[in-house]
Amino acid sequence: MKMHMVQAINNCLFQEMERDESILVMGEDVGVDGGVFRVTDGLYDKFGRERVIDTPLSEAGIVGTALGMATLGLRPVAEIQFQGFVFNAYHHLVQHAARLRNRTRGKFTVPMVVRMPYSGNVNALEHHSESMESPFIHIPGLIVLCPASPYDAKGLLASALKAKDPVMFFEPKRLYRAFKEDVPEERYEIPIGKASVLREGSDLTLVSWGAMTYVSSKAVEKAEENGISVEQIDLRSLSPCDYETIHESVKKTGRCVVVHEAVKTLGFGAEISARIMEKDLLRLEAPVKRVTGWDITIPYPKTEEYFFPDEKRILEGIEETVNF
């Protein structure tokens, strides 16, 4: 069935809640309203208030309560309405969700999923366009997933709902309704920690995730038209990260461009670039290029287009690297 990402995630939540009655959904406006992006539409009618909870308006309260639920036998899917607001709950995620397994040597675990729309360039209000993956990838003990397609969104969320550790599930809101693709009705899982090679190529490796994979694909098409053979990798799982697939590809191509919409400094591109330098230095034909958001606060809608990497900037990055 053709679905866009909102439908795919919604479909997954329905299926998973039917499969496992310990799963519940909680957050602001997720129940009666079906979520501000309609991701949880219909769940309230089907599963009721006990399992689809419109919570008080407190991100820290949502994640804190979810953490307690998870440790004592439930499997909550907590929604943070926009990633820009997650930092009220960051304390719980960093200080406890990420550490509880370790500090109890495996006796207490936090099998919960925290879903949140991220990404920008959709003319949203301030604090609604963040791409804050780095602060979460930085924390040992958290799993960080970021799908770039409806198919991957459903399969990754299904895996997240069987994971034994806390999962941060970043949904690129820019892609929520950007395109539809075939998504199987039946349940399937996409393994956590495994990147997807979208296209094989020999001149250059392009690494991205989430909304930037969609934009990068367009740039890659152009590059191919210009005679550059690009191997395109969509990470899907940011932590754990499938560095092996990146290394294998770079060994073959000798060139790499990393694209992300988060700011450049200490963005995940820095880590990927460092890892390539550590392992593949003698294979490199050019420096690893990062095409990213600038090191500034994301501008208001009138000028936000200057901030986000677009097809043109990505294509320039590819050409610059190939022609180095």
Partner: peptide, 25 residues
């Protein structure tokens, strides 16, 4: 008995969530 926390008060919302689990189960 939940593992004690060093940060102040963080166990309180976990107790609320834990209690919700007890109720649901």
């Amino acid at each position: 008995t939940f593992p004690y926390a060093i940060p102040i008060g963080t166990q309180l919302p976990y107790a609320t969530g834990g209690a919700y689990s007890m109720k649901m189960k």
